[in-house]
Design a protein around this nucleic acid. Structure first.
Length: 476
RNA sequence: GCUCCCGUAGUCUAGUCCGGUCAAGGAUUCGGGGCCUUCGACCCCGUAACGCGGGUUCGAAUCCCGCCGGGAGCACCA
């Protein structure tokens, strides 16, 4: 087994991979590594349909998703390059008397199938079928006028399995191969062929494709070729991620979403943008094993996995949302600045000097929650808050009370001089604006921080110096 | 409706093939406590599960039957 395993992943290029479809990447990668095998990426880009079009931009997008996830396929192939190889297989099936060219309109075909009724063409002899097949290939039929169908059992309990269509005619312009082919195989048959021709040893895929197993197996048995075993995983949904691929597609296309990295897509790249590491995502995904159960997991589980990985190396910074300017009467003059640790438990991550002073920004929600109370400004002094909280952007006065650390509610603050405007992009696409401490002024793009009492955020990939500083919320 | 698949704590998972070592392990959540100048981290403690009903057996989460519940598919899409 070791070293001889060949796996394949077959995405349809219609969007970026999201948290659920990413499972394909991690599972295949996992088994590839475990058995030192090969992993092929085969774009399942047969011609599709009017509703399901192949779009070239998605080839690169998906390749980028793989790269991001740290999955490097040994080979990248396109089904659309391989269509010619499927025709001889069709011929073999016809020779066995197991396929015929059906000229029923789609409507009638479906009805007959539902009734378990045979179409007149079903009785074609192999030579007749071959002639008809040649006419199909030769262009005698228009799209919809003829299909090649497999003879199974019209009494099969599963109607979907009765004489499935193997090839159909389509005039759609394919973005890679144009009009090179008119006769296109359907997914099941194309895989029955390619899984053999590519020497695939194990097929690992989502259970949405289990019916297709049966078709592939049927063709292999018919042609007396041994085929690889199938393994499936159930549906994985993240509770908070109500993603629909078509919705994401629409919103990205119309610009409602900020591209495929918009947090609302829950795409791999959006998670990366939020500072969720691919290692965490990989562990998270793999933890579900190959169970056939459909599962719904709270995002918190993923967040916990990520927190475990990044907490110890992530620098702390102060951020104040819905900032209110607070002038503190009686503030001690010698406390113009304080030196703070970058991480409470990791001295090796260094320290920074932060401006303090009598003019500070505080969060309006904090002011409201503790109106009139004495509070501790974290790492600074104790003050008494005003009884009325002004609106965000307003100013209020507070009163210095004492210096020593006391067990009081601890609030986050940012000195007004040098405060950096920050815009947090939330998971639901909304924005939270506020001020961050001055140290954020020269933060590197893509750097991850923990905003104390807010959560883990990652800087967007904007040029340094962009104001407000754009960050994306990761998780608490 | 038909076909296939799946049911272990709030959530996810180990165990089910090959019955005993499972009075069910782990993770996360939640509750309580400790510690640290974050509501984060860390440490300690705790709550909590074999869908239901029969059967086989000395013994069932594990095998059999029935029921109930959930999911997916039923395209000339992938």
């Amino acid at each position: 087994m070791d070293g001889r395993v060949v796996l394949r992943m077959a995405p349809f290029p219609s969007g970026s991979l999201h948290i659920g479809s990413g499972r394909m990447l991690f599972v295949n990668q996992h088994y590839r590594e475990r058995y030192h095998g090969r992993l092929l990426l085969v774009f399942d880009d047969t011609v599709g349909s009017e509703e399901k079009r192949v779009e070239t931009e998605f080839f690169d997008l998906i390749l980028g998703d793989c790269e991001l996830a740290g999955v490097r396929p040994d080979e990248v192939l396109y089904k659309s390059d391989r269509i010619g190889r499927h025709y001889p297989w069709a011929r073999r099936v016809i020779e066995r008397g197991a396929a015929y060219v059906c000229r029923c309109p789609a409507e009638l075909l479906r009805e007959n199938r539902a009734q378990g009724r045979a179409c007149p063409e079903r009785s074609q002899t192999p030579p007749e079928a071959r002639d008809e097949w040649d006419r199909m290939l030769g262009g005698s039929y228009a799209p919809g006028e003829a299909v090649l169908r497999l003879k199974t059992d019209l009494a099969d309990p599963d109607p979907a399995f009765r004489d499935r269509v193997l090839f159909r005619i389509s005039d759609l312009d394919h973005p890679r191969v144009g009009h090179r082919y008119r006769v296109w195989p359907l997914l099941e048959f194309s895989w029955a062929v390619d899984d053999i021709e590519l020497g695939i040893t194990h097929i690992l895929r989502g259970k949405d494709l289990v019916v297709e197993d049966r078709m592939e197996r049927y063709v292999w048995d018919l042609l007396e070729v041994p085929g690889p075993p199938f393994l499936h995983w159930g549906l994985l949904r993240v509770r908070e991620a109500k993603v629909s691929k078509s919705k994401s597609y629409r919103e990205v296309k119309t610009g409602v979403y900020d591209g495929w990295a918009d947090p609302r897509t829950w795409s791999l790249r959006s998670l990366d943008r939020r500072g969720i590491t691919m290692e965490a995502l990989r562990e998270f995904t793999l933890s579900f094993g190959m169970s056939l159960t459909d599962i719904e997991v709270p995002a918190e589980t993923l967040y916990a996995e990520n927190r475990q990985r990044i907490d110890a190396r992530t620098l702390r910074r102060a951020f104040v949302p819905e900032a209110v300017r607070l002038v503190i009467d009686g503030y001690p003059f010698d406390l113009a600045q304080v030196e703070l640790a970058n991480h409470p438990d990791r001295p090796e991550l260094g320290r920074r000097t932060v401006r303090a002073g009598p003019e500070l920004y505080l969060a309006r929600p904090d002011l409201q929650a503790h109106a009139g109370e004495e509070v501790r400004l974290k790492d600074l002094v104790n003050i008494r808050l005003p009884t009325d909280a002004p609106v965000a952007g307003g100013t209020a006065r507070a009163e210095f009370t004492s210096r020593p650390n006391q067990r009081l509610p601890r609030l986050t603050w940012v000195a007004v001089p040098g405060a950096v405007p920050v815009d947090i992009l939330e998971v639901d696409g909304s924005h939270r604006i506020g001020f961050g401490e001055a140290a954020l002024a020269d933060a590197e793009p893509r750097a991850t921080y923990q905003f104390e009492r807010v959560g883990f955020v990652r800087l967007d990939d904007a040029p340094a110096g962009t104001r407000p500083v754009r960050v994306v919320f990761g998780h608490p």
